[in-house]
Amino acid sequence: MNELEHHSGDPYGAKDGKDLVSGITVFPMEEHVMRRADIDPKAATRAERQVATMFTLAILSVFAFVVSYVKIPNTKMIDVPILGAANANHVAIGLFFGLAILLIGVGAIHWAKKLMPDVEVIQERHALTSNDTEREAVASSFQRGKAESGFAERKLIRRTLLGAMALFPIPLIVMLRDLGPMPGTRLRETIWDKGIHLVTDVTYNKIKASDIPIGGLVNAVPENLLKIEEEDGNLNERGKASIILVRMDPAEIVSQQGEAWDYQGILAFSKICTHVGCPISLYQQRTHHLLCPCHQSTFDLSNSGNVVFGPAARRMPQLAITVDSEGYLIAQSGFKEPIGPSFWERG
């Protein structure tokens, strides 16, 4: 069936003023309004010159681009009004390159709009459905092929083929195995252990308890991190072992994750958010709240690092600390619970 077979005679494929397909009323096209360039040869010449000017400016822009590219040093900075300081070479070549392209486009569109015909043309749609004979022919071709192959009758072939086809992708999937190691217990372990010194992040100096004032915050890592990173050649351990130290008045500590895990009000917590693993850095002294800048999970460090707001479901793991004989902070042990985001096997 062809919905769109036309009645000849009507330019719109309509009958009695009604669209054959939808039945809506069809109105004749509006009369074409002449443009100035259609009537006035002067206007047409003017439009021609405008288009040619744009193309000429595009050509000149390419020359200006080459000169800027060669002549303006890549180190020179200029002040662009409103936008601030910028590299002069970058701005100049960008502007001239941009103009060279833009002017071609604007010129071409101007040409089309002013000088090329703007009389709308009617074109018929062709049917998107084949006729019944053609459709039946396809069906019979398919039936012929199906019968010739014996796919339907020869069950043994069909079933073994389906089995083989179902299994052949397995090697492709199995061969992805060596993309990475099995998870094992990796996500539960950090390099923290009993007696390991806490050192400042970036400068790697041991931290004296007396150097942290009340209200202070220090980013810290284990002292063996740098050596392990060099051996491993990656930042994996840093992503788990980073901690923050805060010091508060011991009287303000409501609870901790273990008895005497602080040292004189200095508390050590994992820095890795238990939501999706962003390193947390925003600490509010007054409330002892730690806020994750990624999704705003908020933890109360004076109260066992419990979640007080946001999408994180787990408290921030605490690291038990003490000092060595010289007064430098050390870990009492490793973390007692996995740090970072939750995972299926975590429990």
């Binding site: 494929g13 669209d19 054959l20 397909v21 009617i122 074109q123 749609r125």
Partner: peptide
């Protein structure tokens, strides 16, 4: 005007 389900009007 002139647009129907069975034609395309344009350029």
């Amino acid at each position: 005007p002139g647009r129907t389900e069975s034609n395309v009007v344009g350029f």
